[in-house]
Amino acid sequence: MPDTNAAAQPATWRIVLAAILDFLTAFFILGYIVASIFGGRTDDGFKLNGLPALLLFVLIIAYFLVFNRYLGGTIWKRILRASRG
């Protein structure tokens, strides 16, 4: 008897790819914003140390928590249709 619930679950590669792309997207976008506010922009992008780097870390965690809990999945999970359930 085939498992009908397995067809509703997204492929593992979609979930992993979405997580990687979400992290990179959050890191570069939020990093650039934090660097713009705290003066960490460089010619090559941005460089964060100390409190701005900690703030970026907290914002990346908040991105994953807020999007997954309240908005039905992160940006790349929705694009790749990798949200469970």
Rank of each mutant, 00 (worst) to 15 (best):
M1T: 14
P2K: 05
D3A: 12
A8N: 05
T12H: 14
W13R: 14
I15K: 04
V16C: 05
V16M: 11
V16T: 08
V16S: 13
L17G: 08
L17I: 03
L17W: 07
I20Y: 00
L21C: 03
L21V: 00
D22P: 06
F23Y: 02
F23P: 01
F23K: 00
F27T: 06
F28Y: 15
F28P: 02
I29L: 13
I29Q: 08
Y32D: 10
S36I: 08
S36K: 07
F38C: 12
G39C: 09
G39Q: 11
R41A: 08
D44K: 15
D44T: 15
G45D: 00
G45A: 05
K47Q: 13
K47E: 14
L48C: 02
N49Q: 08
L51Q: 12
P52S: 07
P52F: 01
L54W: 11
F57C: 12
V58M: 09
V58L: 12
I60A: 12
I61T: 03
I61P: 02
V66E: 00
V66P: 00
R69K: 07
R69N: 15
Y70W: 13
T74R: 01
I75V: 15
W76T: 01
K77W: 10
L80W: 11
L80Y: 06
R81T: 13
R81E: 14
R84N: 15
R84Y: 07
G85D: 11
